[in-house]
Simulated assay, not measured.
Amino acid sequence: MSSRRNFIRTTAVGMAGTLSFPAISKASAFYAGDSSKATTFSIGMAGYTFLNFDVAASIEMMKKLDVHNISVKDFHLPLNSSDEKIKQVLQQFKDGGINVYTVGVIYMKSKEAVDQAFDYAKRVGVNMIVGVPNYDLLDYTEEKVKQTNIKIAIHNHGPEDKLYPGPKQVWDQIKDRDARMGLCLDVGHALRAGTEPDEAVKLYSKRLFDMHIKDVVAREKNASVTEIGRGVINYPALIKALEKVKYNGMISVEYEKNMKDPLVGIAESVGYVRGVMKTV
């Protein structure tokens, strides 16, 4: 058990020295690999993680975690923000060493919402939206993709979602559309909807633009979330699948377990993922 603690402490590069990393109960056998062959994917944060924090507090947590990429949510930068507001918030992130690499998740239930989302992405200066357009808006969304050259990564939201519960439902809607229409794979929601995340990566790699990573405690519809590494998602298999398909997007942690006091849980999750990347 002490070696497990040492593993987490060692691999949580750049995290605050005062953070504690509780012992994790799962998958200790995964760490017997050759650490001289490290797999590296860029780690980001899904903005929803910081629902209860303002921009400044979110930046401070990310700096402690040594994570420098974020998908911005509208509670930090509203969709109807003025150009001055956008400039101000982007400067805050830049000054904190944080790259805003995309925006979303943005829900699109009307043509006006689609227009707003693409205009917002353009003004923020990103080339991708993580979004959820209704089925009847997919043709219109495709038109906007072609007009603006801004990609859309459709996010699956689990068995509760009537539109896109799992990655297959996204794939079925976009596979014959413009190649700039793809998937933001939420691995926790995918598993709750019955799809193993590593299999989803292999099946849908051609349109895999972004990822939200988390963990869940069981392969069940109503499974609760937990720190990455404490649940049932096979992260070594997931990282190996990403390596196999030569994934070049972001893997963004979306931590939802204790959202009013998330830092230690995020740190454990990020440290676990970094550790797996060092050992697969």
Rank of each mutant, 00 (worst) to 15 (best):
R4C: 07
I8A: 14
T10M: 06
V13N: 07
A23T: 10
S35V: 14
S36E: 07
A38L: 13
T39E: 09
T39L: 04
F41T: 00
F50I: 02
F53A: 01
F53C: 00
D54A: 06
A56V: 15
M61D: 02
I70L: 09
H76E: 11
D83F: 15
D83N: 15
L90W: 12
Q92F: 15
K94L: 13
D95H: 14
Y101I: 01
Y101A: 01
T102I: 08
V103I: 15
K109Y: 09
K111N: 04
V114D: 00
A117T: 07
K122Y: 05
V130C: 11
G131W: 05
V132P: 01
P133I: 01
L137Y: 13
D139K: 11
E143G: 07
A153Q: 06
I154H: 10
H157F: 12
K162N: 05
K162S: 12
K168S: 04
R177E: 03
D178P: 11
A179F: 10
L183C: 09
C184W: 03
D186I: 12
A190N: 09
T195H: 08
D198V: 07
K221D: 03
K221N: 15
K221M: 03
S224G: 10
R230V: 02
R230H: 08
E243W: 12
V245W: 12
M259E: 00
I266L: 00
V270E: 00
K278D: 08
K278Q: 13
